[in-house]
């Protein structure tokens, strides 16, 4: 169940929309940031708010890139694999990340902290290679930069 205040925000957004459906992505995104991912139950809950059947919502959830229908780690790393990043060494950085986090593409690290997913061009080609972790962009990636980012996130996780 959603905390009352989040639910209230969602209901307000929905009330403000021309048609509830219009808010489907926002509702799922907000619920996802609360739950971590959209479980079947969360989908049904969201459908209830939006006057949509779970199927109708699933049609959207599975279309898009940033709605997670399976459990993900605390940090979701989307590493860009499009042209410019590819040209600038995406592949070796990906290798590095996999080793560092002990995951394969699509997997979650054994400590449950990191999920590694591909993403297409992030619009940061001027800072390629790039990745995005929980909405924060990291550009001009090198192995060293990746090491320090991951290190920081790990510390952050252990601190809380």
């Amino acid at each position: 169940m959603l905390p009352a205040e989040i639910k209230e925000t969602l209901l307000q957004r929905i009330a403000h929309a021309i048609h509830p459906r219009e808010q489907a992505i926002d509702v799922m995104t907000i619920m996802q940031s609360h739950y971590g991912y959209m479980s079947d139950e969360a989908m049904e809950e969201a459908g209830g708010l939006l006057d949509m059947t779970p199927l109708e919502l699933e049609e959207l959830a599975t279309f898009y890139n940033f709605i997670y229908r399976r459990p993900v780690g605390r940090y979701v790393l989307h590493i860009c694999d499009s042209t410019v990043c590819w040209m600038n060494g995406h592949e070796s950085l990906l290798q590095h990340l996999c080793t560092l986090l002990q995951v394969e593409m699509g997997g979650t690290s054994p400590d449950g902290l990191f999920t590694l997913l591909p993403v297409c061009c992030l619009g940061y080609c001027d800072h390629s290679p790039a990745m995005i972790i929980n909405q924060v962009i990291y550009g001009d990636l090198t192995r060293e930069k990746i090491d320090s980012v991951i290190h920081k996130l790990r510390e952050q996780a252990h601190a809380s």
Binding site: E22, D26, M28, L60, N65
Partner: peptide
Amino acid sequence: LSGGRYICGEGTALLNALMGK
């Protein structure tokens, strides 16, 4: 804020996306 897909930039697909279709 889009859900994130290249096709959403296409003018008519974008309209469907906006309407939650």
